[in-house]
Design a protein around this nucleic acid. Structure first.
Lengths: 224, 224
DNA sequence: GGGCGGATAGCCCGTTCGGGCTATGCCGAA
DNA sequence: TTCGGCATAGCCCGAACGGGCTATCCGCCC
């Protein structure tokens, strides 16, 4: 293990131990610096590859592992999966450049505790690490809120009350007739509403309408 | 403002100030107790309703507001929306009994910083509050990881490669013919695949299939 | 008072769906 | 080798869908 120089000053005996993984020396150092500022956290090791990371993890058994996604011999997700498989209580923080939705999703599925973009302030990484130590099975995600906000600041089409009701039933796979029955309207009316929904969502059929609606979060109130 | 007794001992001058909102005295007290254990946090006020909460917020300007969802005169989401509209930096933690997916989503959209179930250990609430003060626009969610894990440990139907391709095109609203063309298969084959997808997802039409697929995260890789 | 958006409702008609059922070829696991 | 899963492909047919177009009634806002 080459990268074990990250030993900072001795902290409180209960300090949370952290293992940093990134293939850039510079970033590791920057992170270590950030962690130094929090007396409750101690960086006990660093690694620059998946292989090194696994070795360091097994040797050091840190409370939290903070890892980049892209590494020379694999990805941070591999590390997360490997570690999570055997340890449900360690904090696993994914650090990444590209915070696409898929990545976030993949991180969750791999068993990460948190997902932080590299554009986030470093104190956020520290905070995420601390939180992940406390509750490793809570998912924390910087950037997600941003995506949501972009959505909430809204140029989304606004569906009327009735249209939302219709949409909700469409989502359950009901046919025009059944839907109309449930809402006490004629089939014609239902069709009109549906057509209006298509128009507002830029859809030409149920499939498109529902996918668009879900992507835009217009179906948030529905739970079968 | 009746509920302003929550004044705990004086902390470090930079302690994070917290406003607790819940209509149950008992829960407020329990939370206050939990916060007392963290020297970096100070509960500076409590409230039992939306009206009280808004008054308390305006009077006290806390760093973090921790609120229940259900309140006698409205919901915690109303509070979050009202506050977030004018303040992008305050931490807004939603506390709830029922951590359904909709609720989580609604909380994000309202502008909450974190979402914590009442079944979570109280230290998690404190940790969430602390993190929300540091990065209010990061979304933190206990239970989401759990939901993801349930999903990852997977009794989800598994779609074959081809079926996923078909599903992706269905999501774009393509008809059977167009879809078949794009995948270089006959319309009959496309129909067979679609029928198989319906079968695996328990759907009887495109609408149901797509909604189910999205709910199960089977369309995560699609991003037009 | 007139316009506008929403909810209601109807009709026509060509297109598409969805279900059922069969069949072949391929591959890998049992 | 046989069985199962997958991909391919075809046929039939009734039901549902989607588009277009018109129309009335209500409430709200200017």
């Amino acid at each position: 293990m080459r990268h074990s120089e990250g030993m900072t000053s001795e902290q409180t005996p209960t300090a949370t131990s952290v293992l940093l993984i990134d293939d850039h020396e510079l970033i590791r150092t920057g992170l270590a610096r950030a962690f130094e500022r929090d007396p409750s956290m101690t960086v006990i090791g660093q690694a620059g590859s998946v292989a090194q990371a696994m070795a360091a993890y097994n040797a050091l058994r840190p409370d939290v592992v903070v890892t980049d996604v892209q590494l020379p011999d694999g990805t941070g997700l591999d590390i997360v999966r490997a570690i999570r498989q055997h340890n449900q209580t360690v904090g696993l923080v994914i650090l990444t450049m590209h915070s696409g939705d898929d990545q976030i999703f993949a991180a969750m599925e791999a068993g990460a505790s948190a997902f932080v973009g590299k554009d986030a302030p470093s104190r956020e990484v520290v905070s995420a690490a601390r939180h992940s130590a406390i509750s490793p099975r809570t998912f924390l995600c910087s950037g997600l809120a941003g995506a949501m906000m972009r959505r909430a600041t809204d140029d989304r089409p606004r569906l009327s009350e009735r249209e939302q009701e219709v949409l909700a039933l469409l989502a359950e796979g009901l046919g025009t007739g059944a839907l109309a029955g449930k809402l006490y309207m004629s089939e014609s009316t239902a069709k009109t509403h549906i057509a209006k929904i298509y128009q507002k969502l830029g859809a030409t059929n149920r499939a498109q309408a529902l996918v668009t609606a879900m992507r835009l979060g217009l179906l948030s109130s529905v739970n079968p």
